[in-house]
Design a protein around this nucleic acid. Structure first.
Lengths: 341, 341
DNA sequence: TTGTACGCGTTATCAA
DNA sequence: TTGATAACGCGTACAA
């Protein structure tokens, strides 16, 4: 005890303060259950010994870690970076910390990451989207691990998110109202990605409701060049006057391709995005897109998950999306409308 | 034991497999120290009971968590989002997981976050930059917590990073070689940010070496509009022909302001950035900037930190920066060179 | 190669 | 309000 030991324990603190270990523990976890006088003695000893509780021991005895896990496709997508940032900032400081894992849009890897986080003692989980192997949900239920889903909505699980289908439908509605009839879409990969799928279907269904169909659909990986390439191919059909994109990055790529092809936006083609991330207001012209409240979503998700973890019941929250009409949309012009191949 | 209990323990597994708990433990942590035959029995029991080791108990007994902590200013800055993403992907799967905390560029908050992560049992830490209260480094040394610094370089601590000073100096060198003499700079906030400070000083020193000085310096918060505003103010001095920006976001903002002011880039003004994040190739014209290997940096940082944690000694790694000459630079034109106020 | 038995540092139950 | 003490579940010398 008199040795210069690096890590003091509760016993050391208790001894120095002249109390029991139980009291020391209480001072840290339920200060109100200790008389101010003794509490002061204990805190004094804690400072003197530079004591800090052992994480493993605490987790073992209390059966919780204060660690919240999040599995996201990738932080390279600004949408997730911003959402996760807000999520982390909204975690009660001192009470919870964030363990992040990425899965690169791979469902199998997502499953592994979920298991890894739970194995690491995560008290709760933040996941992206609804669509995944039901076995995962069952497993989570058995293990009694609370979770919140984000970037989507639904009624089968707790979530803090928005409606991809409705958001995209609204955008297509606007494009149709402008007079466009020959519309194409550049969608993100829908495989194992219900957000991308929702957006694609939202657009498709709205068109169908008007008795229309896409003049072309490209389903491509996330990325600027990816969007650019898809745009160039789609526009081989000279009748197309509007290209709906599944996200802002694809739209920015499309815009770049348009410039290269000598097409003027929005005079020759209308291009729309989704998400309203930073780049949407940097392109020229600035992108007409669907704004998603990523930051508020992260905050709400954090609040909801913390409630669930503490045993309270929380309500899912559906955030509104909104069309941000900037510079890449306009009515179809004669040049394209009557263009020939 | 026969009850439908949710969490099986080593004892359950040992009983079912007909071995001791020690053997079960070995199967998990040192499979080679167990004969294949018994190992198979044990793994079978593990599967049957759906067993997974208790994190707290394991951490307590083994004195390590397999958790690596990272404290960054914010994930909203793409630079950190990409670096952290690469870092996380490079962590040995199954062995280490990433606990992230943000500090919003606030040194005091960074200190708290570091303590919080260590308190949560982090086996090692990833931190941004070198400049911080020496007490923190001492504390880390006493606690024997390995750490790696990134996004900068130096010889006082292990790091995986790059030279902000040299990177910016090279850019200013290029601008001067183009013929510019009336140069201004939009710098990020240098307070508690050695990366921003390094870039500012790198530029300043190079100018000084040529007997020159900035015609103006604005030190502003991170952000598009922030950069735009600074640019507009700086350009009140009509003699300025080049504006060096501390990062790509500020540069994109400056570019936007230039458009608004009716200035043509690079004909009327040269604008340069730093980092080469996505937006650098989306602006019009595309941004001339300094490329920083954020992804490789994240990977190297992960490799180095894991080595340190495992007791091996690792070498710091200095990554090269590189000028990416795109569309926002050109020699000064007569119009600006001889412009009058 | 496998088993025994103890220690790891807290929390939580129950009495006092 | 405080104290004694039993878990908590796993790793690991040490012994067999």
């Amino acid at each position: 005890m008199s040795e210069k030991t690096v890590h003091a324990t509760v016993d050391d603190v208790a001894a120095l303060a002249g109390v029991s270990t139980a009291t020391v523990s209480r001072c840290l976890n339920a200060p109100d259950r200790v008389v101010p006088a003794t509490r002061e003695k204990v805190m004094e000893a804690i400072r003197a010994l530079n004591y800090s509780p052992n994480f493993g021991a605490r987790a073992l005895a209390s059966r919780r870690t204060g660690i919240i896990g999040a599995v996201i496709p990738t932080l390279e997508n600004a949408v997730f970076a911003h959402g996760i940032d807000a999520f982390e900032r909204s975690l009660s400081p001192g009470k919870f910390a964030l363990l992040v894992a990425s899965c690169g849009y791979d469902p199998e890897r997502e499953k592994q990451q979920i298991e890894a986080l739970v194995a690491r003692g995560a008290d709760g989980l933040l996941l992206v989207g609804f669509d995944r192997d039901p076995a995962i949900y069952e497993w989570l239920a058995i293990r009694k691990v609370p979770y919140v889903l984000a970037w989507a909505c639904g009624d089968s699980h707790p979530y803090a998110g928005f409606d991809n289908v409705a958001g995209m439908a609204a955008m297509v509605r606007m494009v149709l109202d402008l007079g466009h009839r020959n519309v194409a879409m550049i969608s993100g990969l829908t495989q194992g990605n219900d957000r991308a799928r929702g957006r694609l279907e939202g657009a498709r269904d709205l068109l169908a409701g008007e008795g229309l169909a896409f003049r072309g659909v490209a389903e491509v990986p996330y990325g600027l060049e990816s969007g650019a390439r898809a745009f160039a191919e789609l526009m081989a059909d000279r009748s197309i006057t509007a290209v709906i994109c599944g996200n802002d990055v694809l739209a920015a790529g499309a815009l770049r391709a348009a410039h290269r092809m000598g097409l003027r936006v929005p005079r020759d083609v209308t291009i729309t995005g989704f998400d309203d991330i930073d780049i949407a207001s940097i392109t020229f012209p600035e992108l007409t897109t669907v704004r998603v409240p990523h930051t508020r979503m992260g905050e709400q998700a954090a609040a909801l998950l913390q409630q669930l973890i503490e045993g309270k019941r929380g309500e899912s929250v559906l955030l509104p999306t909104e069309i941000v009409a900037r510079g890449t949309h306009a009515p179809p012009t004669a040049r394209r409308r009557f263009a020939k191949a």
